[in-house]
Simulated assay, not measured.
Amino acid sequence: MKKCHVVYLVCTAAMLGTGLGAAPASAGHMTHVVHPGQSIQKAVDAAEAGDTVLVTPGTYHESVTVSTPGLTLRGMGRGTVIEPSTKKATDSTCAADGNGICVTGTKDEKVKGVTVADLTVTGFTRTGVYSKATDGLTVRNVTAVENGVWGIAQEQSIHGIFRNNTARDNGDAGIFLANNVKAEEGAVDTQGTEVAHNLVEGNRIGITVRRLRNLAVAANHVTGNCAGVFVVGDENKPAGGDLVVRDNHVVRNNKSCPKTERLEALQGSGIVLTGVEKVLVADNTVEGNSGTSSMSGGIVLASSMVGTANSKNEVNGNRLRDNSPADLVNAGTGDTAKSNTFSGNTCGASKPAGLC
């Protein structure tokens, strides 16, 4: 077998003429090439730890489950499109749950070092890319569009990296990170998860971080959602927070969304902290977010849905303008509200007055 250069792997006819192609990659790992009409899942199942599954441009009607450590599932850009199958799934699989790509470990062993990159996932009833029980998952250059609930979502995981993705027009959050979607429990230390340099637009909420600690939401462009960034906590211990939201561009999140079972109607919310502690919100540009809900405004500190107050959060060095009803909002009274600090922000109006 002749050696192939794996950049966007174009291999010899002898290798790719029939079925799935496989070529040598570095350190003894293999690259499995998938063409339109072939099964991505079949290639994933054939791959071993450290291998790459390279999916060439085209539309693939299937869901894909990855549980092999160190596997890279990579397309060749937005032209590699994964959409739902026309066949109804009858068992408890990624497809049956309404997801496009699932990266899943187990309760006892997280799947490590998986990468999903350079492809489009669209039209799934629940989530474009869903991950659970992972360690060091990387999702990059993925376009998650028009999925029913979340574009890209993760729970019960650590060391995640979500960079340079586009999450647009999904039913709930474009990017959603949580401790446990179905259970009430204390916040989880994500051990440095990073959500950075993503374009998030047209969703109900751009980026949601729920009941988590120790992560960064940085340098994202968040626009055209009903709400830009939500950092959510509640009465469980440890509390959500101890994380950073910085250098984001959060502008004109003025889409209108009706109330849900968990949340009031939303419109015009930039960055919202609700029921969290020790969050640093710094050096963000927050402009033109305008609405009439209790969470409308530029940077808003609001009590959680169960009445848990924000405490010991720092809002520093942000640039705010043209947000309504105010650029900065600290909703709450008493010593807990006073423990949140506002300094060095450039803004016009605040509630209560004097925060600018």
Score class of each variant (00 low, 15 high):
1 M>D: 08
7 V>L: 07
30 M>K: 14
30 M>T: 10
33 V>K: 01
35 H>W: 13
42 K>A: 15
52 T>P: 04
53 V>R: 05
54 L>V: 10
58 G>H: 04
59 T>M: 03
64 V>S: 11
75 G>E: 13
82 I>E: 12
84 P>D: 08
100 G>H: 10
112 K>G: 07
115 T>M: 10
123 G>P: 09
125 T>E: 13
130 Y>A: 11
133 A>N: 12
134 T>K: 07
143 T>M: 11
143 T>R: 03
146 E>T: 09
153 A>Y: 03
154 Q>W: 08
164 N>W: 05
164 N>M: 11
167 A>N: 07
168 R>I: 15
174 G>S: 09
186 G>M: 09
192 G>Q: 01
196 A>W: 08
196 A>G: 00
207 I>S: 01
208 T>P: 01
210 R>P: 06
246 R>G: 06
248 N>D: 10
252 R>L: 14
257 C>W: 09
259 K>S: 15
262 R>V: 14
263 L>V: 15
271 I>M: 10
275 G>R: 12
277 E>F: 06
277 E>Y: 05
288 G>R: 08
290 S>Y: 04
292 T>P: 00
296 S>E: 08
310 N>T: 05
311 S>E: 04
315 V>A: 05
317 G>W: 05
317 G>F: 09
322 D>F: 10
322 D>Q: 11
323 N>M: 04
327 D>R: 07
333 T>G: 06
341 T>K: 13
347 C>V: 01
352 P>Q: 06
354 G>I: 01
